[in-house]
Design a protein around this nucleic acid. Sequence first.
RNA 1: GCGUCGGUGGUAGAGUGGUCAAUUACAACAGACUGUAAAUCUGUCGCCCAUUGGGCUACGCAGGUUCGAAUCCUGCCCGGCGCACCA
Length: 403
Amino acid sequence: MGLFSRTPAVITDEKAVDELLTRGVAEVIVKEDLRKKLLSGKRLRIKLGIDPTSPDLHIGRAVPLLKLRDFQKLGHQIVFIVGDFTAVIGDTSDKESERPMLAREVIEKNKQSYFAQAGKILDFSQVEMRYNSEWLKKLTYREIGEHADLFSVADFVARENIARRLEAGKRVSLRELLYPLMQGYDSVAIQADVELGGTDQKFNVLAGRPLQEHFGQAPQNVVLNPLIDGLDGTKMSSSKGNVIALTAAPADMYGKVMSMADEQVKIYFELCTRVPMGEVEKIASGHPKDAKMRLAREIVAMYHGDDAAMTAETDWQNTFSKGEVPHDIPTLHFGRGIPWYALLLSDQMLELVRVSKTEMRRLVEQGAISEIGGQKIKDINSNFERPTTLRIGKHRFVKLEFL
RNA sequence: GCGUCGGUGGUAGAGUGGUCAAUUACAACAGACUGUAAAUCUGUCGCCCAUUGGGCUACGCAGGUUCGAAUCCUGCCCGGCGCACCA
C-alpha cells in the first residue's frame, strides 16, 4: 500500500471468500484461480458492465449489483462500465430478436435513471466509473480487425440464441457480432481481474479472456449469477410484466412479492437479499406465507427503508387478509344521488382506473365492482347516496365522496 | 440488383373473396376456490352506443378490382431465403 493510500485492507477471511463465491453464483471461471487471488490479499479490479438500454431496473438486474457490493465489502475495487458506446450497438444475448440501435439522448436519460436506482444498492462514491466510449471510439478498423481475428464465426454462430434465430429464419445483423469484441476489449482497457454477469452473458464475458491474453494481461476470472425467473415462474422480462421494478412503490413491491409462487421464495432470498443463508433455511422451513412476507419485507426495506416496509406490510394485511382498505387511495367527488352508471362511466373514473367504457361495463357485469363492507354493485341504475369506497377487481380502490 | 417467400390483434401463430372483430396458444382482466398465493375451474379479452341488438375502425403503407377483400391486382416500404467467384 502506498503512503497516500486510504484504501481499506482487503479481507481474506476464507469463510467470507467462500460465501462470495457460492451465494447466488451459478458458475465461476476459473474457480480455483479466483479463490487463490481473493485469498492473496491483492486488491482486485471487479468489472460490471451495464448498457443503459432501458430506464427501469428490475430486481433481476439488481442481482449482480448485490454481488458487486459483496466484493466491495471485502475491499476490492469496483469498476463500473457504462456502455455508452456498446449500447449503441446493442447486445444480442438472451434476445430472440435484433436489438435496435439507441439514440444518444435516450442513452443519457437511461443512464441517469439507472444510477438513481442502482445507488440504492451500491455505494458509488467508492466505485471507479468508466464510459466505454473512452476507448472504444478511438479504435481503428485495423485494430478491430486484429481483435476480431481472435474469434471465429463458428464460435458465434454456435451460441444458442443466435443459432435459434438463424434456424427460425430471423435476421442476425453483422453488427451484433461486434458486441462481444467490444465488451471483451473493455476488460483489456480497465485491466479487469474479475467480471460479473448473468449466465446469459457467458459468451460476452468470456470474450475478455483471449483479448486480455492477446494484450499480455492475465485473463480475467468470471463470476456468473443464475437468472431468476419472474413472478409467474417463467423467464423474467419487463415486457411480460412479471418483474419487480426497483422504482415500484412500496405497497406495489410488497404485493408483487406476495403474488409469486411459493417455490421461488428461496431463490429470491438467496439472490435478492443478503439474509444469511442459515437463516434463510430456517425461514423457508416455516409457513410459506410467513416466509414470503418476510421476503417481501426484506426487499421493500432494501429499496424504500424499514418504515416503508412495515407500512406496506400492514397495508397488505389490512387489504387482503382483513378485507379492509389500504391507506393511500385516490378520492373522487360526485354529486349526491347521481346514478351509478354515470358515476362509473365518468371520465374522471375511467381515467383513474385506466379502462375504457366498454371495459368498465364489463367489470360491472363480471361483478368486479363492490363497496367495501357492502355489496357488489350490480344495479347501475340505482343511485350514489352515501360516501363509500369502491373496490374494483382485486387491487384497485377508489374513495367516493360528495361534491 | 435479380428471383422467390413473407409482413395479421400485447406476443406467437391460423385464416387465402362473403358464415372474420378475425381459429388457437400464451399473456392480461374478472369470478370461484385460497394464504391477494401458486395450481385448478369458469368467464371476458378493438372502440362506441344499447335491454336482445346496432354502429365504427382494424390484418405493413397507398391506391384499385368487386355487390362484398385480411384474403385478388398495382405501386411503395420492411424482412427471410437463393443467386451474384469458379462460368
